[in-house]
Design a protein around this nucleic acid. Structure first.
Lengths: 232, 232
DNA sequence: CCAAAAGTGTTCTTTATACACCCATGT
DNA sequence: ACATGGGTGTATAAAGAACACTTTTGG
């Protein structure tokens, strides 16, 4: 294969997308990391990502990478920020358009198994020092998540289709790093009118089982088009 | 000059930054546009921007472009969003990392005069159909500005160092497209404790002159580091 | 019958909204 | 003296925070 086939009048940076993939499980917020098999940063962990193809925009690129890594499609994914420091990649000038995704970890588990690459879920608190400027990317992703969960219904993206209110509260408490009052939380979240009560409860626990709810996406879409604002 | 000197193994997009420059004057929110002198979109208006150099990151590139266009330095500028649709530029694959800047129009007026390019301030309501995907960029910039002005003290960036509370309220009303109560606005904005009263008033108007204030940047910095949240 | 977590209502405090009159200035 | 916009306080409504007991279930 011939090399250096693509020539331009002025120098151009390489463009990649990197994706911070959040999952929530066992009362912990986690991110999916890939262990680098080659230099630079060999042996260090990094967010999955890859080069932008010429026939796709950055959203498509990020979704493609996400699919290749997790087998998941149609998940919540959003552009985060673009990083372009001159020395962020020792191999040369590489800019990255970063994204973050929220996935239902239970779905991922079905898909997982093809361990071509060494991918691993890390609880946020146990993320090691990352390759490149990915520590910074994670910090920005966490801030975005924390900010956004308060006024957009994105928490549901991290839970199963059916979830309980205590589960949801737990998720909020962990992301916001704050204790919330059980009664007030329930009141507020039910007051949105966006939860569908499935009238069935968790079975097999040695205490009263919590009721299952699901998020009414269709109703939310209608309401938000009419200027309604979700807020917790 | 030789052409096509820069060769790579894989194709790369060209990378630019574009900057939405907001100013406020005569009770109107305005943006600075450049009339394109060449194809594509010859004769159409667009945001100032240019190619990323290999020795600068995108922030530096955006600030450089801003300086070249307005002669202003040390102004508020923030990354907005990156646009990468395959067909967004008919000349080929070009992605742009967009920014928005808030400037004090009075400062600009001192600098202006070198009309190498045809630059013009347009009130938001009179912006024509723009070149490339710049209509979309403007829409996103407006949303960002509207969202951000409520919980970060960025409105001051658009006013003179010394401003009156009615001026500030006017700015808020125009950006938020809403009428605000005069007494409540004043109460709220003064309650932050971040306005310095200059104890002098507007002279030469046929009514009681409004008092001048300025924004206490230093105090805000201190407070925000301690977790204080500006909100209007 | 005990342990463990779910479910529920009311009071109090804080914040937001609504609203009308006097004041200073130039003509 | 009048027209114009600036400055101010209070009362009401709404939202948020604080708080304790009962219920269900499995062991």
């Amino acid at each position: 294969m011939e090399t250096n086939k693509f020539c331009y009048e002025y120098p151009r940076p390489a463009v990649t997308t990197d994706c911070v993939i959040f999952g929530f499980d066992e009362g912990e917020l986690k991110v999916l990391l890939i262990e680098r098999g080659i230099e630079p940063y060999k042996g260090r962990w990094a967010f999955p990502g890859g080069f932008l193809n010429m026939d796709e925009n950055s959203d498509e690129c990020a979704r493609r990478e996400l699919f290749e890594e997790t087998g998941l499609e149609n998940v919540f994914i959003e552009q985060l920020y673009s990083f372009s420091d001159v020395d962020r990649d020792p191999r040369g000038r590489v800019i990255t358009i970063s994204y973050y995704a929220l996935i239902k970890l239970a779905d991922y588990k079905i898909q997982a198994g093809d361990d071509a690459e060494k991918a691993k879920w890390f609880p946020i608190s146990k993320v090691p020092t990352l390759a490149f400027d990915h520590d910074r990317i994670l910090r920005i992703a966490m801030n975005r998540l924390r900010g956004k969960i308060r006024y957009q219904p994105i928490g549901f993206e991290l839970l199963n289709e059916k979830f309980t209110i205590p589960e949801l509260q737990n998720l909020y408490e962990i992301i916001l790093e704050a204790q919330l009052d059980r009664r007030n939380f329930r009141k507020k979240i039910l007051a949105t009118g966006l939860l569908i009560d499935h009238k069935e409860s968790v079975k097999g626990v040695p205490h009263k089982g919590a009721r299952y709810f699901s998020f009414d996406k269709k109703k939310y879409k209608e309401l938000s088009e009419r200027g309604f604002n979700f807020e917790v």
